[in-house]
Computed example of a mutant assay.
Amino acid sequence: MVSGLAANSFVAVLGFAGGLGVGSALAALLIVLDIIPRLAQLAFAYRKSIWFETAVVCGALFWSLADFLEWRLWLPKHPTLIVIGTFDGIFVGMLGAALTEVMNVLPILAKRVRLSRYLVSLVYAMVIGKVTGSLFDWLVFQYMDP
């Protein structure tokens, strides 16, 4: 009885600590990189930035509840995957673009390896590599036998 209680308490503390760590990391990412103000600036919606903030908080809350309560929604497989994949791609692309823009990764990389003249080619190579790798993983690798 006591060992079960101790194990459950340990799992609860570990889960709470993990949640604090992930939540803190997300908050730090959003604050340090100014993702929401930059998105409001790009959308010319300075006065409506509260909507961006509310969307992030509501999205995190909704998906946390969906995960904890094991909500299931039965939808047709292929159209749903296309829609979800599109939104996932938009999210990852915007996050990657925000990180790249804020940290000035490409100009620094091009300058350090003396590729400033080939910066456009470097961007195209990265995009083509990312798309090719994603398509390979999506269409080929996931169907290979383990």
Rank of each mutant, 00 (worst) to 15 (best):
Met94Ser: 11
Ala110Asp: 15
Leu95Cys: 07
Val56Ile: 14
Ala97Gly: 07
Ala110Gly: 09
Arg72Lys: 13
Ile90Val: 15
Thr86Leu: 14
Trp71Gln: 00
Ala98Glu: 14
Trp74Ala: 09
Glu101His: 12
Phe62His: 08
Gly96Met: 03
Asp88Glu: 12
Pro79Gly: 03
Leu109His: 09
Phe62Thr: 15
Ala60Ile: 14
Arg72Leu: 02
Leu73Phe: 12
Thr86Asp: 10
Lys111Gly: 08
Leu106Asp: 12
Val105Ile: 15
Gly93Ile: 03
Asp67Asn: 09
Ile90Asn: 06
Trp71Arg: 02
His78Lys: 12
Leu81Pro: 04
Leu73Ala: 05
Leu61Tyr: 11
Glu70Trp: 02
Thr86His: 09
Asp67Tyr: 11
Thr100Asp: 06
Trp71Thr: 06
Gly59Asp: 08
Val102Thr: 13
Trp63Pro: 06
Ala97Pro: 08
Met103Lys: 05
Gly89Arg: 00
Leu69Ile: 05
Leu73Glu: 07
Leu99Tyr: 10
Gly96Asn: 08
Val56Lys: 00
Pro107His: 05
Ser64Val: 09
Ile108Asp: 15
Pro79Arg: 01
Phe91Arg: 07
Pro76Asn: 00
Trp63Gly: 00
Leu109Tyr: 15
Val105Trp: 09
Trp74Glu: 15
Pro107Met: 02
Lys111Pro: 07
Ile84Ala: 08
Gly93Glu: 05
Leu69Gln: 11
Ala98Ile: 04
Val57Cys: 03
Ser64Glu: 08
Met103Phe: 12
Leu95Ile: 15
Trp74Pro: 00
Leu106Gly: 05
Phe68Gln: 13
Leu106Ala: 06
Ile84Asn: 01
Glu101Ile: 09
Leu106Gln: 12
Leu75Val: 07
Arg72Asn: 07
Ala97Gln: 09
Leu81Trp: 08
Ala66Gly: 07
Thr86Ile: 14
Thr86Cys: 10
Ala60Leu: 14
Val102Tyr: 13
Met103Ile: 06
Leu109Phe: 15
Asp88Asn: 11
Phe87Thr: 08
Thr100Ser: 06
Val83Glu: 02
Phe62Arg: 04
Lys77Ala: 01
Asp67Gly: 06
Asp88Thr: 10
Leu81Ser: 05
Pro107Tyr: 00
Pro107Gly: 04
Asp67Ile: 07
Val105Cys: 01
Gly85Met: 02
Pro79His: 01
Pro107Val: 02
Asn104Pro: 04
Met94Trp: 11
Leu81Glu: 15
Val83Lys: 01
Asp67Gln: 11
His78Cys: 05
Glu101Pro: 00
Thr100Lys: 01
Leu65Val: 13
Leu81Phe: 10
Leu69Trp: 11
Lys111Ile: 07
Lys111Asn: 14
Leu73Asn: 06
Pro79Asn: 00
Ala110Pro: 04
Pro79Thr: 01
Thr80Ser: 03
Gly85Lys: 02
Lys77Gln: 08
Met94Tyr: 12
Ala60Phe: 13
Asp88Ile: 10
Leu99Lys: 05
Val56Asn: 03
His78Arg: 08
Leu106Ser: 05
Thr100Cys: 03
Val57Asn: 01
Trp74Gln: 09
